[in-house]
Design a binder for these strands. Sequence first.
DNA 1: ATTACTAAAAGACGAGTAA
DNA 2: TTTACTCGTCTTTTAGTAA
Lengths: 222, 222
Amino acid sequence: MVEAEDLQSLKTIALLGGCNGPIWLSSQSFGDELGISPQTASRRLIALERQQFIIRSMKPDGQHVAITKPGEQELRREYADYTRIFNPKRKYYSLTGTVISGLGEGRYYMSIPHYKAQFDEHLGFEPFPGTLNIRLDPASIQIRRDLEHLRWIEVSGFTADERTFGGVKTLPCRIRGEFCAIVEPSRTHYRNDIIEVISGGELRKILDLNDNDMIEVEITYD
Amino acid sequence: MVEAEDLQSLKTIALLGGCNGPIWLSSQSFGDELGISPQTASRRLIALERQQFIIRSMKPDGQHVAITKPGEQELRREYADYTRIFNPKRKYYSLTGTVISGLGEGRYYMSIPHYKAQFDEHLGFEPFPGTLNIRLDPASIQIRRDLEHLRWIEVSGFTADERTFGGVKTLPCRIRGEFCAIVEPSRTHYRNDIIEVISGGELRKILDLNDNDMIEVEITYD
DNA sequence: ATTACTAAAAGACGAGTAA
DNA sequence: TTTACTCGTCTTTTAGTAA
């Protein structure tokens, strides 16, 4: 557990732009920012450095400070807490976008029994071997980010034939009333403007969809 | 400036649901939550109460704690900081909705010289005396919340004829390429599904708009 | 001007205790 | 069991100082 004061210091650095690259600081200026003495400010920076939340390089007139990956992670954890406090009750999300052709990867994955079985168990349908790829509108790309805070169903990965199949996560949704689910890899981040949707049947046929058709994906929650 | 530890305590209470109503706590359980002794936990609660961030009522087996408006405000301030850290680079927002009829209040306010002059100064056009009212689509209501973190232009209120005219804030935007601005009161929260837009001319005529027409409001930023 | 040490002052912590 | 006090200890802070 990271100290409340360290978090406060780290946040202040982040607000000054420390997540994007080194920023200039002095004990004086940093202390003013936090309302503490330069001595304490200096010690705080030393503490953050010890915990590897920042890296520093001394200059004659101060120092350059940048937030490290672990430091940023800590801040994101905090951010997620606040998001949980203030955005939990949102009951409805709507994404819009256009149908595009995928590369057939979805079809491959959906044909693997391990995934098939788990989707069946958690979603209540056996997925059609193929995914519907949707390119999101700019406005929906933002909304998609909010979805991260919802309860996705985790489907574990596995190893077979000396190959590793990563875990995926899935979120139930509806397209034109049809029960579907968004699927994405648990770890890697694919392009954030494209989502892949699975269903119990072939959505392109069921809904008579073609490339470039505009569709809406609705997520209702609890 | 609120202490880092108090903020941490307050956040913990919020995560337990303290923003929505009274929750049960004991010094013991709260201390466990924070990794501190019950004595310190008790002192923290007292401190929060002194600052009016929480209200408490003692029970034989613990206490009921609820976060007050000022307490919640403090947390929202913190949340906004994190939002600024992680979501600053969004350059484009798009709201969609339908044109509706307002109550003519906008017309009244836009005819007041004080407002007129300030809008002229900050926006570069003298507002047409009237506002275009737009009912947002569900998806856009969410996006609208994100707009709060952008740099709105503050227009101060004033007092005249023994009446108080509140401050308003405005955000430049475009509708079908036409330069406009969203306007809303700085303090009070109106319905979150309706926005009011002003422009240098009468938008209904310029863009040939009628009630129930669908339109898109675009906000580009920096 | 810096950083970062030492040492004195201030404040926070938790054990013990009463209600 | 609680809450919340006192009190001794320990930690944190800031002033002063050196580099």
